[in-house]
């Protein structure tokens, strides 16, 4: 629709995706991935895919984040390599 909005959302999404795989702390990576999911939700809404946006918000930003945090709590927080 508005190309500036789409451009900004996609730019922040790419930044979040790069940050999520390059950051050393796994908890920070999880939170950045949740932010990526939130931007994805806004992008789906802009593209009039409300159903997909709802699923992305509920699963991507909600359940997956909690699942990753629970998994980090059971293992080590920082990567060693």
């Amino acid at each position: 629709m508005i190309w500036e909005l789409d451009f900004a959302l996609l730019l922040f999404m790419i930044l979040c995706a790069i940050a999520a795989i390059t950051v050393r702390d796994l908890l920070h990576a999880t939170i950045v991935l949740a932010a990526y999911s939130l931007l994805m939700t806004v992008l789906w809404s802009v593209m009039n895919a409300v159903d997909v946006a709802f699923t992305e918000a509920a699963v991507g930003a909600g359940i997956t984040t909690v699942l990753f945090i629970a998994a980090i709590a059971r293992t080590r927080r920082s990567s060693s390599d």
Binding site: V50, F54, A58, V59, G62
Partner: peptide, 13 residues
Amino acid sequence: AGGGFQGGVVFAA
């Protein structure tokens, strides 16, 4: 918008 899957996920949340 919504459905069984999304509602179930929100209930689990």
